[in-house]
């Protein structure tokens, strides 16, 4: 009972029996996850460099990177920020509102996708055709220099 006398209302005392072992373990875990992410990132880079990039494979790799990122976020919040050792109801007041992100991400990315489809079909009035809105000079390529 040397410390933790923040206020008599708080009876929780952090457990130090494991010393700094858990911190270092988490550090190595985070580093490992980052290295795997970088490996996947380089794989995506090399697929893009190839003649015919496999879109499904790229998407799968990107999905894996997203999952690894969520794992990293979990370890940072749970171990480094000690949220894992707080009272369960307190964890819920933080985590439950964040569930709003599920809707947030799906709804807005869907909106972006639909925006692209509308533009590529002139609001549905023509067949789907990609138009590069910024690539205006494409028409005057090949010896257009005067």
């Amino acid at each position: 009972m040397s410390q933790h006398t923040i206020s008599p209302e708080i009876t929780f005392a952090p457990d130090h029996s494991s010393g700094t072992k858990q911190i270092w373990k988490t550090f190595w875990l985070l580093s490992l996850l980052t290295v795997i992410e970088l490996g996947l990132g380089l794989a995506i880079y090399n697929i893009h460099k190839g003649e015919h990039p496999n879109a499904t494979l790229v998407l799968a790799f990107k999905g894996m990177v997203c999952i690894l990122t969520l794992a990293k976020a979990y370890y940072i919040v749970s171990v480094f920020m000690h949220l894992g050792s707080e009272v369960r109801n307190f964890i819920m007041t933080i985590v439950v509102p964040l569930a709003l992100f599920i809707w947030f991400i799906i709804a807005f990315l869907w909106d972006g996708e639909s925006w692209k489809n509308l533009r590529n079909t002139n609001g549905g009035s023509r067949e789907y055709k990609k138009t590069e809105q910024h690539a205006a000079p494409a028409a005057v390529e090949q010896g257009a220099k005067d």
Partner: peptide, 22 residues
């Protein structure tokens, strides 16, 4: 931060071409 990143994602999804970060 989430709103910023999601807005970035929305714009990115709405484009036919996006920049290759590599």
């Amino acid at each position: 931060f989430g709103a910023f990143l999601i807005s970035y994602g929305t714009i990115r999804f709405s484009q036919n071409y996006w920049v290759d970060p590599n």
